[in-house]
Write a protein that binds this DNA or RNA. Structure first.
Lengths: 120, 120
DNA sequence: GCACATAGTGTCGAAAAGGATACCGTCATG
DNA sequence: CATGACGGTATCCTTTTCGACACTATGTGC
């Protein structure tokens, strides 16, 4: 989704809501943040936990989350390359929100269609 | 932002997070939901509270929120037209999340630039 | 008649977001 | 040499989102 620019000076009282959604709302970001709650993960570990995300998109979204100060990317001088991602304190402070989103989704969103039905 | 389709059968444990963000994450939706927390509002009332939203976008987002079951649209057989929007029980259950988003935004997002500075 | 109230709708284009595909560099192993 | 590990990057295309602009319908008041 589009970034809501804070350059918009007619910012109304609800603006922070929109602002937060703008930084956590990109595709795959919710999943990434959720999985990082459990602790530091490497690139391919995230990728395995978020099936169907392309490498390209994972990189892009991780870089954006980093730019917004929600996660920390640690590069080790190793071969093969080793890069670790973990929530920053700022990102960690989103934990109750992420967990509340998960709980609400589990209660109110339709469950996925079982595989067997689709195969028919 | 794009709807995350639940037709994606490889839904991982964090999927509900992504699913909720997909329905509340469109531009202006966070603001709309926030303002409706205070109670029933008419179209132009919402519009005045959300400066800079176009009529077109307000209509579109309201219709999506309605389709996702988050709000109720009540049409009165009157002239001039009278249409009221209010949170559904399902939408109302998002209140703690919306308020948490607002609190987090107020604490962690940069404040808007004061008007006087821009005028300079 | 015109302008105002209300709440939209239709159409199209621009911009943004997302994704597909090929390729990269270093080292280790068979 | 080829292939695999790792974590990407580059390029281009597709899809989606958003917004601009014009128009709509009914009634009322000047």
């Amino acid at each position: 989704m589009a970034r809501v620019p804070h350059a918009n000076l007619d910012c109304s009282p609800g603006c922070p809501v929109e602002g937060v959604l703008a930084i956590i709302g990109g595709k795959w970001k919710g999943l990434i943040l959720y999985h990082l709650l459990a602790g530091t993960l490497r690139f391919n570990e995230i990728r395995r936990r978020v099936p169907n995300v392309t490498q390209r998109m994972l990189t892009t979204q991780l870089r954006e989350l980093e730019a917004d100060g929600l996660l920390v990317r640690t590069v080790y001088a190793e071969v093969p390359p080793r890069v670790e991602y973990s929530l920053s304190p700022r990102g960690r402070s989103l934990e109750p929100i992420i967990l509340a989103l998960k709980a609400w989704g589990e209660e109110h969103l339709r469950p996925a269609i079982p595989k067997a039905v689709v195969a028919a």
